[in-house]
């Protein structure tokens, strides 16, 4: 059984591509056969995040236009044997592919993979429509900011009208020090507002910047964000892993905090 999951957000820059790369790696690390499709035609990036930018010969548009076979365009990941990337075209635009062509492509890939992850472009135009058409499940990536949550809500509304079977929330870039001070919305606040189930919380972690610079997945690192992505991958795979949020207050602050003057 193949599950087709679209990773989307509405707003740009909230971490869709990083999430796609790491969930793909995380699922492949569990021994699954996974293909990640970059549907952001004209603004291709998933290849760079994965460190596979030098291996691209053919792309999504070539496959759709019949220039090459799917197999020729699929790039095998350097780290995981079951992980493949179908890169997007850099020199074309979103109108180069339509929804019927995407559906056909996904149907062809379905019998070869356990998971198909679609990295959706920002916005709600043709690129978004292409990305969601073949998916039965969606992961909404958002950050705890008013603008990102507003866009996420719009996307959820659109997905519901498209009869998406399952919609989960992935809250990215949470700073628990700010949540504790009341200066950032907590995961509970965001879940209450958006009204969809939470699949995981990624803390704001400098390792994300470091790993992205190197073109390596986070799931191999011993970072908080890496662990969060590993857990989410397991949840997608059907395992029951409770969502653990880091303690807002460390033991040491609890001890010394009694003697500290309150800061505003």
């Amino acid at each position: 059984m193949c599950e087709v999951i679209v990773i989307t957000s509405g707003k740009g820059g909230v971490g869709k591509t990083t999430t796609t790369a790491n969930l793909g790696s995380g699922l492949a690390a569990l021994g699954k056969k996974v293909v990640m499709i970059d549907t952001d035609i004209g603004l291709r990036n998933l290849d760079v995040v994965l460190g596979l930018e030098n291996r691209i010969v053919y792309n999504l548009v070539d496959v759709v236009e019949g220039v090459c076979r799917i197999k020729q365009a699929l790039i095998r990941d350097k780290r995981y044997p079951g992980l493949y990337l179908l890169p997007s075209a850099q020199t074309r635009d979103k109108t180069a592919v339509n929804e019927q062509q995407m559906l056909k492509l996904i149907e062809q890939l379905k019998n070869q993979f356990d998971y198909i992850l679609l990295d959706c472009p920002a916005g709600i135009e043709q690129g978004f429509k292409n990305a969601i058409v073949g998916a039965s499940r969606a992961i909404i990536v958002t950050t705890p900011e008013v603008s990102a949550i507003r866009d996420a809500d719009r996307i959820i509304g659109l997905l519901e009208s498209h009869e998406m079977n399952q919609i989960d929330l992935l809250l990215n870039r949470v700073r628990f020090d700010l949540v504790k001070k009341g200066d950032m919305m907590s995961p509970n606040d965001v879940v209450e507002i958006l009204g969809i189930p939470l699949i995981g919380v990624i803390p704001d972690d400098e390792q994300v910047v470091i790993s992205t610079n190197q073109g390596e997945p986070l799931v191999e690192t011993v970072s908080l964000a890496g662990k969060a992505y590993r857990n989410i991958s397991q949840r997608i795979n059907g395992e029951k892993i409770p969502i653990e949020l880091p303690n807002y207050v460390s033991f040491w602050t609890k001890v010394t905090g009694i003697f500290q003057k309150p800061t505003s």
């Binding site: 705890p144 900011e145 008013v146 949550i149 507003r150 809500d153 719009r154 509304g157 700010l178 949540v179 001070k181 009341g182 200066d183 950032m184 919305m185 907590s186 606040d189 507002i193 505003s264």
Partner: peptide, 21 residues
């Protein structure tokens, strides 16, 4: 003291989303 900025964000969003939806 005055409301925390996280609460302000939450309240603004609640009102915003009702009209958006």
């Amino acid at each position: 003291k005055k409301k925390s900025s996280g609460d302000i964000a939450k309240d603004r969003l609640k009102i915003l989303l009702i009209s958006d939806r």
